[in-house]
Structures are given as structure tokens and as C-alpha cells.
Simulated scan of single mutants.
Amino acid sequence: MAVGLHGAAMAGITPGATVLVLGAGPIGLAATFFARKLGAGRTVVAANSTRRQALALQMGADSFIVKGQGQALEAAVIETFGAAPDIVLECAGQPGCISEAIQTVNRGGTVVVLGYCTTADSFVPATAVWKEITLRFSNTYTVGDFQHVAQVLARGALEPRAMITQHVSLDQVPSVFEALRAPSGQCKVMIHPWA
């Protein structure tokens, strides 16, 4: 949650801003939640499958786009928003996502990269230059971000709790980790060591 807050805050979201979140993993879902809390007017999540569509909508997304289903992402985004978004939060960390973010953001917009891509990636700088976008990279969170998230949860925010998809005991951890190697509907598995 703190990583999502940190990136959303770095984007400088102003009231009414349109926000596209690329990726529906825990960071993308947290970024969606905090984009709305920071005043985003319309928030859309785009991901490779519908596995976390319901969670994205619970966390505050207005719409959900499945990438690669017949229509180019940029066209699907413009169709959904009615225009290119002001802000794109790249939360997938997959090669090509920074390029997608730059291509889809509006002229003069902001792209914040929260995704953690560990392989070589590329994009066309001229596209970013032509659009005069701001491109920022986010590194985890600050102590203040963490404290703010703790306060939000302590005040009873219910949406983030939807990310917890399973509770397991220590004995179940090996089998759960093995199951997580394949695509699933899991988001956050909580371990209860004394259960």
C-alpha cells in the first residue's frame, strides 16, 4: 500500500485528473486506491487478464481494460476516457510498459514508473519529448508514506482488505508458494504463523 501511495503522490494528482494504471497486481491496486484518495476524477486500470478486475473496481477504478484483446491499448484508453489520460502509473514492471505509458499519456502529462522491471527495456525518447511529458521513477516508499497507510487502515478503510485473498498457516506456506507459480486469482496471501 505504501508503494502505491508513494507513486501516486509523486504523480502530483490534482482534483479531477484522469489516471491510467498499468497493472492490477498489489502495487497497481494500491496506486488505484490512492489515486482516488488524492482526487483523481476518473481512474482506469489496464491489465493482461480479467483475474483482478473485480479487485480493481473495488479499489476505486471506474473501468478496466484487458490489454491485447483486438484493440491497441492507446485506442482502448482513448475510447474509455474520451481522451488520453493526464497521468499514467506504470505498475506492471514488464518490458514494454514504459513505452506503453509514454504512448498513452496525454501531451504535457506525467508518467510515474512503479513497476520493477529487471531486464533491459527500451522506449522512443522522441515520443516523450514531442509530448513534453514528465517521466519519473518511484523507489518503494518513505517512512511517512508507511505511517500514512497505517493511519488510513486504522481509520477503517475497507477497500485494501479486499486484496487479502487467502489466510494460511506456516504449514501451508510451501504448497501456497508452489501454487503461486501459475497464474491465479490470488493477490495477497497472509501468513498466520501461530494458526
Rank of each mutant, 00 (worst) to 15 (best):
V3I: 07
L5R: 15
G7W: 07
M10H: 09
T14F: 06
G16E: 13
G23L: 08
G25K: 04
I27R: 07
T32A: 11
F33V: 04
R36C: 00
R36N: 02
K37I: 02
K37E: 14
L38E: 08
T43V: 15
T43D: 12
V44H: 15
V44C: 04
S49R: 05
Q53G: 05
L55G: 08
A56F: 06
M59L: 15
F64N: 12
G68C: 12
Q69P: 03
L73K: 01
L73H: 00
V77K: 06
P85F: 06
L89V: 06
G93C: 05
G96T: 02
I98C: 01
E100Y: 01
I102T: 05
Q103Y: 07
Q103P: 01
R107F: 12
G109F: 01
Y116P: 00
A120T: 13
S122A: 14
S122L: 07
F123P: 01
F123C: 03
A126T: 13
A126L: 15
A126E: 14
T127W: 14
S138A: 13
S138E: 12
N139D: 13
T140P: 07
D145E: 07
F146N: 13
F146Y: 15
Q147P: 03
A150S: 12
A150M: 14
A150Q: 15
V152S: 06
V152D: 10
L153I: 11
A154Y: 13
E159W: 12
E159I: 06
P160Y: 02
R161Q: 12
R161V: 08
A162S: 13
M163C: 10
M163T: 11
Q166H: 09
V168Q: 05
D171R: 08
Q172H: 06
S175A: 15
S175E: 14
R181S: 05
R181G: 08
S184K: 03
C187Q: 07
M190Q: 12
I191G: 03
W194A: 15
